[in-house]
């Protein structure tokens, strides 16, 4: 590993639990490279995760970290950030974690525009429990709970976050690791709620049932199906049909929640003294 990114890992907690071919380690690698490039201060930063394969990542990092309950990582993180806005807060979640059981917390953290950087590991499946379909599993894909193929429409997670009010939204894959690292840095430097969707492979519980091949072949699938924002502009809907856009998808400016609350405190204190 280049630079000094490894200092962000807690090596006592390794080896990790992820399966051979799993892309979660690649996302974690991009994350610590981003930390290294930003020079993130480990004593002023917390990493919070939910439940599932990807959420084990918080335990492999050397921070004040918390592995919370299923779906609730953003709610725990909101408590920490509001209590002490000077702390940098990163949240790691899986696709089922963030969009099903934690969907309400995701849209409300986005609505508040609270300064939290969220990385969602999207492997299209509930991996920890053995391969049940998630709200991100594409139509007609097989899962243990969709033996005839899924009949539900999947979410566009990045679109959901943007529509709910997130002021920074990006998407990359575990093939496009340079982009993933850059998006995490941009999201972390952005003041407000940032969502970075990391498309990652689960060869054991998703790829295997959908004839997508090995971890390597699934990476190649990501290479072929992830289309950079600029390139996508020149493609027809027909050409984009089974593809997805990667890169910086949305960036806007809006008041940040803990800053507004800080102003509210001053206002309340002034009017109290005035009484």
């Amino acid at each position: 590993m280049q630079g000094n990114a490894e200092r962000y890992l807690n090596k006592e907690r390794l080896p990790h639990i992820w399966c051979p071919g799993c892309g979660n380690g690649i996302v974690l690698g991009a994350l610590i490279r981003a930390f290294d490039k930003m020079g993130v201060d480990q004593d002023k930063t917390v990493v919070i995760s939910g439940i599932g394969c990807s959420s084990r990542a918080s335990g492999y990092l050397d921070f004040n970290s918390m592995h919370t309950t299923h779906g609730r990582a953003l709610a725990f993180a909101t408590g920490i950030k509001l209590a002490r806005p000077e702390i940098n807060v990163f949240v790691l979640m899986g696709d089922g974690d963030a969009s099903a059981i934690g969907g309400n917390h995701l849209i409300h953290a986005a609505r508040r525009n609270i300064d939290i950087t969220t990385v969602i590991f999207n492997n299209s499946i509930y991996g920890m429990t053995g391969g049940q379909y998630s709200p991100l599993t594409p139509r007609d894909c097989r899962a243990t709970t969709a033996p005839y193929g899924t009949v539900e429409r999947p979410f566009d997670l990045a679109g959901l976050a943007q529509a709910a009010g997130a002021t920074y939204v990006g998407r990359a894959t575990t093939y496009h690791t340079g982009l993933l690292t850059r998006l995490i840095i941009s999201g972390a430097c952005h003041k407000g709620f940032s969502v970075i969707e990391a498309v990652t492979a689960c060869p054991v519980s998703f790829g295997r049932r959908n004839e997508m091949g090995s971890g390597h072949e699934m990476l190649m699938w990501q290479k072929e199906h992830g289309v950079p924002v600029e390139k996508a502009k020149h493609l027809t809907p027909e050409e984009m049909k089974d593809k997805f856009i990667i890169g910086e998808l949305h960036k806007s400016v809006a008041p940040e929640y803990t800053e507004i609350y800080g102003q509210l405190i001053k206002k309340a204190q002034c009017s109290y003294k005035g009484e």
Binding site: A75, F76, H105, Y261, I265
Partner: peptide
């Protein structure tokens, strides 16, 4: 807010309990 504290109305009861635990930590 008058004593410099924080109040938040969360999106649901699970989130409220989670935020309380986060703030305590």
């Amino acid at each position: 807010p008058i004593v410099g504290g924080k109040f938040i109305q969360m999106e649901d009861e699970m989130a409220s309990m989670a935020a309380v635990i986060g703030a305590s930590l």
